[in-house]
Design a protein around this nucleic acid. Structure first.
Length: 812
RNA sequence: GCCGGAGUGGCGGAAUUGGUAUACGCGGCGGUCUCAAAAACCGUUCCCGAUUUUCGGGACGAGGGUUCGAGUCCCUCCUCCGGCACCA
């Protein structure tokens, strides 16, 4: 089964060496670039694994795209670095009994070697980033301070997501179905004082930004849903025999007259105060119980509703009715006001609750169709039982009631967001320390920018601190104890570190000037190279990294530190490569090792096969055999280019030759633009198939021209081979300094075209006619065709449809 | 439950505004070369039926509709994948 292949090993080693030696991929970012193209792929996360096929699928085709853009005359910047801080890296280190700095450095060393084997246009000498280096995280801390000083970073006590296995809190975005994104443990709630970034201030701005960026609709939709803007009314219910009010938010003010009770979240601040004496014990027990539950238990919709009556009543703002106040865990403390008005007739959750606790259900909206009494009716309809609002359509009534509440000062229109502030504290070691000092007399004091970085101490026994629930840094007195920057008295450092997503929320700004020491980024380099023109990465980051990065960019823009407010102008998600039907992962044991494949087939073949598998954005199932096809293909080109050939019979139609060449250029270019690498490669294969057949009939000079066309078109897909072939053809400079070919429209025109003839929409024959034949000519020729005659015999022709250059359809 | 996306040969997939369904590749089969095999090359390959270089019929998840004409547009349903999921 051994394939005889072209000498890929020598070729790939040779060109990788040459590229490195000549500094081909070095980009000087200090000058403005008229045709700059910042092509970025999400940088590497070196936790423990080496590069696998998934990484390759991400990096290889992106480099092909970058090289294609380079050949189109752009100055392309394509950097690579390491998102080196983080929980998995720390867990890996603990497991191996080594220091994370050590294991991370080792991993990076290995991964860098693997990255080099791809043969991408990365500049490891000059434009590499390691987020765990003090030179980098110094500026992550600076970013924190910038946000802090502008009211965008703050500390508060809140019930937060706690992962019992990773021993740290998590952001909402890192909780998937109530489980930890990293280890899948059930997440619990903990009341802790934590640091947050005020992303909610940007909720609306983030929603408006989509207009100017070219992103997959799906991703934009996911972000929009995550931000979850909803318009409604916030109104007050007065509590009987009390000065207190309960504010509720609703998007359905039209159902206000259907309110039969109020519900507070168990964590609602007034719970104790509002509970009548005789019920205090029971209510306290319920609240306690709710606290103990995990997110999964509490969020389960299969579970029956639970709740308890406080014994208190409130007054309906319009009808003046007595409304009982209940407590139930189906109301969330973190959304809206933490209290809701319950309309069981028109809200499924309230309906279930009312059924269980025998609370009244009052219909105030009548649907057009007959209502189903087993469910709440949540649609629109005509209003009833709503006093002076009766007979209105719910859509209009909603506005009238809002008007009325606003006029009487009982409520106001409001917009609520599902988005919560970004919780960035982590009770872990391997991250950027939060640059804050707590002083008994001065309070919370930020570290001076000049004193950055707050160095992560290297001496630490993670095994000892792990699992204590305390941040590992709290075990190091030398780190914790520090004089207050303001008063000089004894003070303590913040011991939590920052979420790794903070590191990656700004890295694209540092890439053009990774060694800059006077700031997080050289303003000139940023001015010259940002925003990112083309960004490639997994769709799993839709509401994590991609949302955070947009927020940080907007914040820095408002602080006038950068000149743009959207970081990534165009976004592409690579699909997922599966093996045996599922995503590759070490735990499933279905990871395909790229190193072995490079050894067997070479880097160009592997990259090209990944692109050939299917549409880039859809990914696909890995198949060991398919790669042989690409290997044959490149070897065939190699042979065609290197073997002598006697051009005996010169019978080739040069017109046809030209047409096929231009047709190929057109197709490959169009497919590239669509990001359909697979069909671009198909077009190249068809071209090679044609050339192989026509080979002996082409004069040598024409043949050489055809081959050069092929080399130019193949270069971005197989960069090492492309360079080699170009050199063999006698060229001195790099093929990537050549221009991508454009096609000649007139060369595509054919003299004759084959037109199909249909009878009642079924293909019955075909005729070849001059391309410029008129409709009349097509029609006559079709009707008079022998094969067609037999179908028309004895029938009346009702209609003839002519599509010029394509078909004639005869309707009988 | 809600919101997206997708269902085409044995397999990965193609079909750009509705106009020859299955391009390209894998695999299979037959052949050339060889002592033999591998590799390479050539041919062949959706299914059924015959009068077998030709012809007819069927097939793009299922069913219906629009149209001269539907893989493509519309409706209903089924399956798979992704996201959200008590968000008031």
């Amino acid at each position: 089964m051994r394939l005889v292949m072209y000498p890929f090993k020598e070729i790939e080693a040779k060109w990788q060496r040459r590229w490195e030696e000549s500094g081909t991929h070095r980009i000087d970012t200090s000058h403005p670039e008229r045709h700059k193209y910042y092509c970025l792929v999400m940088f590497n996360y070196p936790s423990s694994d080496k590069l696998h096929i998934g990484h390759w699928y991400n990096y290889g085709p992106t480099d092909t795209w970058a090289r294609y853009k380079k050949m189109q005359g752009f100055r392309v910047f394509e950097p690579m670095g390491y998102d080196a801080f983080g929980l998995p890296a720390e867990n890996y280190a603990i497991e191996k009994g080594v220091h994370p700095a050590h294991s991370t450095a080792e991993n990076i060393k290995q991964i860098r070697q693997q990255l080099k084997a791809i043969g991408a246009m990365y500049d490891f000498e000059d434009k590499e980033i390691d987020t765990s280096s003090p030179q980098y995280y110094r500026w992550t801390q600076w970013l924190f301070l910038k946000l802090y000083k502008n009211g965008l970073a703050y500390r508060k006590k809140a019930p937060v997501n706690w992962c019992p296995k990773c021993h740290t809190v998590l952001a909402n975005e890192q909780v998937i179905d109530g489980r930890c994104e990293r280890c899948s443990s059930a997440v619990t709630k903990k009341d802790l004082v934590q640091w947050f970034f005020k992303i909610t201030r940007y909720a609306d701005a983030l929603l408006h930004g989509y207009k100017k960026i070219d992103w997959p609709e799906k991703t934009v939709l996911m972000q929009k849903n995550w931000i979850g803007r909803s318009e409604g009314v916030e109104m007050s219910f007065f509590v009987e025999r009390s000065s207190k009010t309960i504010d509720v938010f609703t998007t359905r003010a039209d159902t206000l007259f259907g309110v039969t009770y109020l519900v507070l979240a168990p964590e609602y601040p007034l719970v104790n105060e509002l509970t009548v004496h005789s019920r205090k014990e029971k209510v306290a027990a319920y609240v306690e119980e709710a606290k103990m539950e995990t997110e999964i238990e509490r969020a389960s919709i299969i579970r029956e509703k639970t709740g308890i009556f406080t014994g208190s009543y409130a007054t309906h703002p319009l009808s003046g009715e007595r409304i009982p106040i209940w407590i139930a865990d189906y109301v969330l403390t973190s959304y809206g006001t933490g209290a809701v008005m319950a309309v069981p007739a028109h809200d499924q959750r309230d309906f279930e609750f009312a059924k269980k606790f025998n609370l009244p259900i009052r219909q105030v909206i009548v649907p057009e169709k007959a209502p189903n009494n087993e469910q709440a009716y949540t649609g629109e309809g005509k209003m009833v039982n709503s006093g002076s609002f009766n007979e209105l359509l719910s859509r209009d009534g909603r506005e009238r009631i809002a008007d009325c509440l606003e006029k009487e000062g009982k409520g106001k229109r409001k917009i609520n967001y599902r988005l919560r502030d970004w919780l960035i504290s982590r009770q872990r070691y391997w991250g950027a320390p939060i640059p804050i000092i707590y002083c008994k007399s001065c309070g919370e004091v930020p570290v001076s920018e000049d004193d950055l970085p707050v160095l992560l101490p290297s001496e630490i026994d993670l095994k000892k601190t792990h699992g204590s629930g305390e941040s590992p840094l709290s075990s190091i007195p030398d780190f914790v104890n520090t004089p207050c920057p303001q008063c000089g008295k004894k003070a303590r450092r913040e011991v939590d570190t920052m979420d790794t997503f903070v590191c990656s929320s700004w890295y694209y700004l540092r890439f053009p000037s990774p060694h800059y020491e006077k700031g997080a980024f050289d303003p000139k380099a940023v001015k010259n190279w940002l925003p990112v023109d083309h960004y490639v990465g997994g769709a799993e980051h839709a509401v994590l990294h991609l949302l955070y990065a947009r927020f940080i960019t907007r914040a820095l823009y408002d602080l006038k530190l950068i000149h743009f407010d959207e970081p990534f102008m165009r976004l592409v998600h690579q699909g997922v490569i599966t093996n045996k039907g599922v995503k590759m992962s070490k735990s499933r044991g279905n990871v395909v090792n790229p190193d072995a494949l490079i050894n067997q087939y070479g880097s160009d073949v592997l990259r090209m096969y990944l692109m050939f598998m299917g549409p880039y954005e859809e990914g696909g199932e890995w198949n060991d055999n398919g790669i042989r096809g690409i290997s044959r293909f490149l070897t065939r080109i190699w042979k065609m280019a290197s073997e002598d050939c006697h051009h005996q019979k010169i019978t080739a139609n040069s017109q046809e030759l030209k047409r096929i060449k231009h047709h190929t250029i057109k197709r490959v270019t169009a497919e590239m633009e669509r990001f359909h690498f697979n069909t671009a490669i198909s077009a190249l294969m068809e071209y090679v198939n044609y050339l192989a057949k026509a080979r002996r009939q082409i004069v040598l000079s024409d043949w050489q021209k055809e081959m050069e066309t092929l080399f130019l078109l193949i270069a971005p897909f197989a960069p090492h081979l492309g360079e080699e072939l170009w050199t063999m053809a006698g060229h001195k400079r790099s093929v990537f300094d050549e221009r991508w070919l454009s096609y000649d429209r007139t060369a595509l025109e054919e003299e004759e075209v084959t037109v199909i003839i249909q009878v009642n929409g079924r293909v019955r024959g075909r005729i070849t006619l001059p391309a410029n034949s008129s409709e009349e000519v097509l029609r006559e020729n079709a009707l008079n065709d022998k094969r067609i005659q037999k179908w028309l015999a004895g029938k009346e022709v009702k209609k003839v449809i002519v599509a010029r250059g394509k078909l004639v359809n005869i309707v009988i």
